[in-house]
Structure formats: structure tokens, C-alpha cells
Amino acid sequence: MAEGAALFANWPDDRLTRLLGTQHPIIQAPMAGATSLGLVAGAIAGGALGSLPCGMLSEDAVREAVNAVRALEAGPLNLNFFCHDLPPDEDDGDWRAALSSFYGEYGIDGSGPTPPVRKPFDAAMCTVVEEAQPEIVSFHFGLPDAPLLDRVRATGARILSSATTVEEAKFLADHGCDAVIAQGYEAGGHRGWFLGTEPDSQIGTIALVPMIVDAVSVPVIAAGGIADARGIAAALALGAAGVQLGTAYLFAEEAPIIDVFQQALMSDRAGQTVLTNLFSGGVARGIANRLTDSFGAISDRAPPYPHASAALAALRSAAEAAGDDGFSPLWAGQAAPLGAPTGAQALTERLAREALAQIGRA
């Protein structure tokens, strides 16, 4: 405990650690499909904010996950939710027709079980938050409507959300966010954009962070292209109060990613990421594969988010069973080649220790 207190005192900007109640200004990013309970608990044990991705879970599943993490490790916990506009069920016949040759290759007709639709944060999930009383609640794709946001705030939870532009950061700060996550162009996974036209708003982390720092009074959290202590030190130098890391945690032994994803991360392909809408209909960064090579990374043939994934479900399953990642969303950021296998707790502790040394605070 004494060592922890000393490290807490050494960070040059303590706004985020005090806001979150963490030892280090590090957030383990909530990565749907790539986050286990052990990963979250390991990040918390290492002094970071552990994050549970809840956007693809049922209300009961969120309740169970919160209880399980808290049984594994005490410490601040973040529940993350999506706030996208859900379009009506899309006729994806054209998309399935475009994929038909791949269906034939794997001897499937493209039908069968499909993944659950990613639902935006709603009143039922807000009730779960009220019951669970997490220390932090974060959102992606903006914020929920004011009545729901007021209910979340009434629980005492600190509220975070992602911004890809200065305009979005100002909106979040003006609508009561306690801190803003500045998501640079380099970040893996889905872009958190919610204002304007995404293809025209691509800003790298090194430019985005200081602009947002100058534009808002709340703490700014840098995300995108940060996977080691040098990146953390650079983010702090740019004025960020802390960092959010996702891709670095994909290399943790607790990360529940499939073998073909692990192999891609450990190969030279990890440095070949693209922004694509093919897997979900939303723009997200991942490792290029057969699907992106076949259609181009961005295609208007894919239905809007989140409906594109349904037509890929059976194809993805068949390909993965054959050891082929060609139709799997391999979400990863541009700093993926800097990752190295380790445990989540050990990774967090090493990043903090080395970052403090980088900034002369060790």
C-alpha cells in the first residue's frame, strides 16, 4: 500500500486518478468480444480502471459480470455502453448476394444463428446501472438522452464518453461529462464519432489531444496509437490527464480472443490496419483481411451499423473453424506491433512504472 501511495503521488497531473479513484491514470479500454472478467480484474489489480463492455450483453449478463469482477478484485469499475441511433431492421439481401461466392466456398447458405443486435443504452440497462452502482459509466457514440443521463448521474457515477473531434469534445463537456476520451485516428475498434461526417473528421491523437485540452476544462484522456510507456509519456506531455489503452491489452493472457486473431496480432499483418465498415456497418479499425481486400475497406454495399454483421455470422464461424480469419473483425489499433504477451496486471504495472521513469518521476 505504501508503494501504491508513492506512485499515486508521483503522477504530475492527478486530476484523473482522483476522479476515477485509481492508482494510475490508465484505463483498460472496454473491447466487446475481447474482454474477459479476468482481464478487467487484472487491470484493476494493476492500478488501472477496469472496463466492462456492456453493449452486446443482456441486462442479466451485465449484473452477473459486475458481481463476478467484484468478487475477483476490489477497485473502481467502469461499465461501457453504446449510444448509437438504431436504424430499423435492414433488408440485407444485396449484402448477402455480394457474399454468396464466399458462402459457396464454405458450403453454407449464409443463414443460421446471427449475433444479437447491438442495442443502444436504454431504460432497462439504466436500471442495471442504478442497481450495480459502478464508480464509472462510459459511453460510445455520444451520450444517452438527458433523462437517462440524469439517472446515471444520480447514482454518483463519474461519466465519460469518446470524442473524435473538438466539436464532439465540447458537446460532451457541455452535457456533463466528467472527462472526455480523445479518440485519435489510430485507435482500434469502432470510432466513437457522433457529430458530423466521419470520413471528413479523421484527426490523429498527437493533434487531437492538445486541441481538446485547449477546448474543454474537464480532464482529457488520450486514446489511439498508445501501447507503451513512450506513448503514455507523450500523451501527458500533450496535456492529457491520462490514457485509455485497448490494443495493448489484447496481448494479455486473459484476453479471450480466438487463435486466428492471436496469430494475426503476432504477425507482420498487425501493422496493416484499415478503417472499415464491412463487419458491422460502423467505421472501425482492424487488421486487413480477405473481406477488406475483396470489397475495399469502405463499401456502400454493407448495411448501416449494426446490421452488417448478421450476414457474416455463419461465414465467419465456418472460416474460423477452418483456421481462416478472412471474415473476422480483427479490431486493433495502429500501435499493435508494439504489443507483447503478458498478464493484465503485470502489463499495467510495467506501463505505469516505465511511464513514470520516462517523465522523470520514478
Rank of each mutant, 00 (worst) to 15 (best):
A5F: 14
L7N: 13
L7D: 08
A9C: 01
N10T: 01
N10Y: 02
D13W: 05
D14E: 13
L16F: 07
R18A: 14
L19G: 01
I26C: 08
I26D: 10
A29F: 14
P30E: 01
M31G: 04
A32H: 09
A32M: 12
G33D: 09
G33W: 13
I44F: 15
M56W: 00
M56V: 11
M56H: 01
A61R: 00
E64I: 02
A65E: 08
A65P: 13
N67H: 14
E73F: 05
E73K: 14
N78M: 07
L86P: 04
L99N: 06
S101R: 09
F102L: 00
F102D: 01
S111C: 11
G112N: 11
T114H: 07
T114I: 14
D122T: 07
A124W: 05
M125F: 13
C126N: 08
Q133P: 03
H140M: 09
F141Y: 12
G142Y: 13
V152W: 07
T164E: 00
V166E: 01
V180I: 12
I181K: 07
G189E: 00
G189V: 01
H190Y: 10
R191C: 03
G192H: 02
W193F: 02
Q202P: 02
I206R: 03
A207G: 06
P210D: 12
V213G: 10
A215Q: 04
S217G: 12
S217V: 11
A223H: 02
I226S: 11
D228V: 03
D228G: 10
G231F: 07
I232D: 10
A235D: 00
A235Q: 00
A237Y: 06
G242D: 04
G242K: 10
L245T: 02
F251Q: 14
A252I: 07
P256F: 05
F261M: 12
S267W: 00
A270E: 00
T273G: 06
T273M: 13
T276A: 09
T276K: 11
T276M: 09
N277D: 15
N277R: 11
L278D: 07
F279S: 12
S280V: 11
G281K: 05
N289C: 01
T292D: 04
S294R: 15
F295P: 05
I298F: 02
S299L: 04
S299I: 01
A302H: 05
H307D: 11
S309L: 08
L312Y: 10
A314N: 05
A314G: 09
E320H: 04
A321W: 04
A322N: 09
G326F: 10
F327T: 00
A332W: 01
G333I: 10
A335V: 06
A336N: 11
L338Y: 13
L338D: 06
L338F: 13
L338V: 04
A340Q: 13
A346S: 12
R350V: 09
A352S: 09
A355D: 03
I359K: 12
G360R: 00
